[in-house]
Design a binder for these strands. Structure first.
Length: 471
RNA sequence: UCCUCCGUAGCUCAAUUGGUAGAGCGAGCGGCUGUUAACCGCUAGGUCACUGGUUCGAGUCCAGUCGGAGGAGCCA
C-alpha cells in the first residue's frame, strides 16, 4: 500500500491500491446499499479534495459516520473511476483510520460554511484549511520559487542582507527599534539622552526597512544580485495594501540604466505569470471563479505584454487631459494620488504601466539626477520608476542609482541628511563606481495582483499591522 | 494619523415610532438519497463589544473607551 499525495492520487492508474492522509473537508452519508459515506479529503497538495467512499461493512463504520469537517484521517483503498458526477476518480476505502477528532464541532472555527475573510483573520492558525487560503499559500509559494528561478537563470546571486540594521539612513519610513535595554531602567548620558552605548549593539539599531543600500555593496563586485526577505515599517498604516512586516524582492544590476531596470522587472512579472499559468491552474480557476473574474486573462496578458512605459511628464498630461473627475488635481512637480495611478493602469492603459523620470524633489537622494530637459520636463527629474498595476497600485519602485560622488553628496546635503552616516555607501562611488540600477517589488502586492485578493492581510500567513501581532 | 461605516447565537445577518431576541448556515438527533453549496423534520445555542448617562422602560437614543472594515496619507 503506497502513501500517495492526493495530487498524485488523482493522476494514478485506476485499480491501484493506495493510502492517502489528510483532513476531512465534508462528509455526506447515504443509506443506499446498506449505508455508505462520501468523505472529501484534502492534504493541501492540490486544490481539490479526493472523494473517499466508505461502506457500511467497514469494521469501524460507526466511527466513520461520526467524522466531520476538520478531522484528520488515513485511508487505505483502491482508486476507481467514480460512479457519481463531480469527480473522475475516487477511493473505495478498505480501511479508514481516524487520526484526530474535532473536539467541539459546534464551535470549530473552520466549519463547512462560508466565512468572512475578516473572521478568518482572527483564526489565522486554521484558515489555511479553507479553499481560499490553501490556494493563496500555494500561489505564494509558486511565485516565490518563480522569482528565485528567474533571477538564478539570469546569473543573479541571492544576498542575505541583514534584518537588524545599525544604519539609520535607509530612509524609507518609520523604523522599529531593536534593543535589549531595560524599559524600567533606561541608562542616560550626562545630558539626559538615552545612552545607547550600553545597548546590545553599542548604538541605536532597528529592523530594516530595505536591503537596498546593503545589496548595492554586493552589486559593486558581483554585478547582479538581489535580496528577498522580510522588511519592516513602523508606519501607522491602516490600508488593504500595507503591512508592518512584508517581504520585498530587491534586485540590483551593475553597468545598467533605468531602461535595463524596467526590462528586468517586466521580465520577472512575465516569468511569474507564466509559471502560475503552467503549474497552478487549479488554484487560478478558483480565484477566477470566486475572487476576481478575469484574473486568468490578466495573467495571460502579462505573459504577452507585461509593461507599458511612459514618462511622469506624459502621465501628468494624460491625467490633465482626460474627462475623469478626480478628488485631487494633478500638477507637474507633485506626487500622483492613488486615484490618478489607478486611472492610468486600470482605465487608460488597462495594463501594468511603468512611470519613469519623476521630479527630483519628490524622490529619494540616491536616485540618479537626469540631465536638464529630459523628456521635455519643465523641471529637473531623476531616473526613477514606479510600476503601477490594476487593483493594487504601486507594485514596484525603483531607480537608476546616482553613481557620481559629487552629485550624490550634493543631493545628500540638499535633503538635509548627515553625510557622515553614508560613509560606506559613498565609498562605493569612490572606489570603482559604475552606473547601476535596481528596484523593490512588494511580494505581497504581487500575490494580490496574481490572485485578486483584496486585502494584503490575506496573502501573508500571519499578518503584522497596527494592533495585529497575534499568532 | 484623518474621514465614513460597523460591533446582536459558533459564523453571516434581521429586530418597525424606545416596550425584555429572530432567521439562514454550522452543530446534535432522526428521515431520505451514489452523495457532492445535498434535501426534509426536530433540538440545543444569546452578559445584544465594554463603561457610564437619558427614560417608567434601551439591542435601539446620548457620551466615552476598545475592536473591525472601506477610503485617504505614508509607501512596496
Amino acid at each position: 500500500m503506497t502513501w500517495l499525495k492526493i495530487k498524485d492520487a488523482f493522476t494514478a492508474d485506476p485499480g491501484v491500491e493506495l493510502t492517502i492522509k489528510g483532513w476531512v473537508r465534508t462528509k455526506r452519508d447515504s443509506k443506499a446499499d446498506g449505508g455508505l459515506s462520501f468523505i472529501a479529503v484534502n492534504d493541501g497538495t492540490c486544490f481539490d479534495p479526493i472523494q473517499v467512499v466508505a461502506r457500511h461493512d467497514l469494521p469501524n463504520y460507526e466511527e466513520i459516520a461520526k467524522l466531520n469537517t476538520g478531522c484528520s484521517v488515513e485511508v487505505d483503498g483502491v482508486l476507481v473511476e467514480s460512479q457519481g458526477k463531480g469527480q473522475s476518480v475516487e477511493i473505495q476505502a478498505t480501511a479508514v483510520r481516524v487520526i484526530g477528532w474535532v473536539q467541539d464541532p459546534d464551535t470549530y472555527p473552520a466549519s463547512n460554511k462560508r466565512h468572512s475573510f475578516e473572521y478568518l483573520r482572527e483564526v489565522a492558525h486554521l484558515r489555511t484549511r479553507t479553499n481560499t487560503f490553501g490556494a493563496v499559500a500555494r500561489v505564494r509559494h509558486t511565485l516565490s520559487q518563480s522569482i528565485h528561478r528567474f533571477l538564478d537563470d539570469q546569473d543573479f546571486y541571492w544576498v542575505h542582507t541583514p534584518i537588524i540594521t545599525g544604519s539609520d539612513c535607509e530612509g524609507a519610513g518609520e523604523m522599529f527599534r531593536v534593543s535589549t535595554l531595560d524599559f524600567m531602567n533606561i541608562p542616560k548620558t550626562d545630558d539626559g539622552q538615552v545612552d545607547f552605548s550600553q545597548d546590545f549593539f553599542g548604538k541605536e539599531s532597528h529592523l530594516t526597512v530595505s536591503g537596498q543600500l546593503n545589496v548595492e555593496t554586493y552589486c559593486s563586485s558581483l554585478s547582479r544580485v538581489y535580496t528577498f526577505g522580510p522588511t519592516f515599517r513602523a508606519e501607522n498604516s491602516n490600508t488593504s495594501r500595507h503591512l508592518a512586516e512584508f517581504w520585498m524582492v530587491e534586485p540590483e544590476i551593475a553597468f545598467a540604466d533605468l531602461e535595463d531596470d524596467v526590462e528586468l522587472a517586466s521580465g520577472m512579472l512575465r516569468a511569474c505569470a507564466s509559471d502560475l499559468l503552467e503549474t497552478r491552474m487549479d488554484d487560478l480557476e478558483f480565484f477566477n471563479l470566486r475572487i476576481e473574474k478575469g484574473i486568468i486573462d490578466r495573467l495571460k496578458m502579462i505573459v504577452e505584454s507585461p509593461v507599458k512605459t511612459i514618462t511622469y511628464t506624459e502621465a501628468i498630461k494624460i491625467i490633465e487631459g482626460c474627462n475623469e473627475k478626480f478628488e485631487y488635481q494633478v500638477k507637474w512637480g507633485s506626487d500622483m494620488q492613488s486615484e490618478h495611478e489607478r486611472y492610468l493602469c486600470e482605465k487608460h492603459f488597462k495594463q501594468p504601466v511603468a512611470v519613469i523620470n519623476y521630479p527630483k524633489d519628490i524622490k529619494a537622494f540616491y536616485m540618479r539626477l537626469n540631465d536638464e530637459g529630459t523628456d521635455g520636463a519643465p523641471g529637473r527629474t531623476v531616473a526613477a520608476v514606479d510600476i503601477l498595476v490594476p487593483g493594487v497600485g504601486e507594485l514596484v519602485g525603483g531607480s537608476q542609482r546616482e553613481e557620481r560622488l559629487d552629485v550624490l553628496d550634493a543631493r545628500i546635503t540638499e535633503m538635509g541628511l548627515d553625510i557622515d552616516d553614508y560613509w560606506w555607501y559613498r565609498d562605493l562611488r569612490k572606489y570603482g563606481t559604475v552606473p547601476h540600477a535596481g528596484f523593490g517589488l512588494g511580494f505581497e502586492r504581487l500575490v494580490q495582483f496574481c490572485t485578486g485578493m483584496q486585502n494584503i492581510r490575506d496573502v501573508i500567513p500571519f499578518p503584522r499591522a497596527p494592533r495585529q501581532a497575534e499568532f
